[in-house]
Design a binder for these strands. Structure first.
Lengths: 100, 100
DNA sequence: CGTGTAAGGAATTCTGACACG
DNA sequence: CGTGTAAGGAATTCTGACACG
């Protein structure tokens, strides 16, 4: 796991970094837009990647999107990523077959 | 400021990441081996760079060094870095003068 | 010197709920 | 729907001190 994806920050710092309120951050978690980890005691732990996601979410919310839509946009983005990788693999395989 | 140098972690997480006790981390701060920031309330905030430093410190302590010596080794390292940069600048200047 | 620990207090976070628009 | 807020409790952290070797 990279430094960007390691869950190490408490919600207070994330709030400072993103400018979002604690309430907003907790709500976006409830709506499955982010997935912080938890300490034994139950304290949320976020990564820098989560902070980046939250900043994108903040923009989308300002643009008037619903959390539901933002969730779908995230999913779509991931799916496209999958497709892109699959297609790339296909291209590589085709190129390889051509060569022998 | 990069992601590596941003002070975002509480001492509990740093303890988990380094394997050091809270007491040890606080003591190494007292001895000026690390310099965490503070929240308004006084809570320490560490960076990933601090975590790296602490792991080096842990090694040195196991090797039997005193915090005092480790502090000096850090200083020496920084001084060498300065010298290296100064000399590099000198080389570049010399090369530049040669060319005209 | 370096570290553990108990002590008391303060800062931080948690959840569930009510309110508003 | 998204967010603010007061409420009560729990987890986390803080400092200064005593102890030990």
């Amino acid at each position: 796991m990279s430094i960007r994806t390691k869950k190490v920050m408490t919600i207070g710092i994330v709030s400072e970094l993103t400018g979002l309120s604690l309430r907003q951050i907790r709500y976006y978690e409830e709506r499955k837009l982010i997935s912080p980890e938890r300490s034994k005691g139950g304290t949320r732990k976020f990564s820098f990647e989560d902070v980046e996601k939250l900043m994108e979410i903040a923009e989308k919310m300002e643009d008037g999107y619903l959390t539901f839509d933002i969730r779908n946009m995230e999913k779509a983005k991931q799916t496209n990523e999958q497709i892109r990788k699959t297609m790339l693999r296909g291209q590589l395989n085709a190129a390889f077959r051509t060569r022998r």
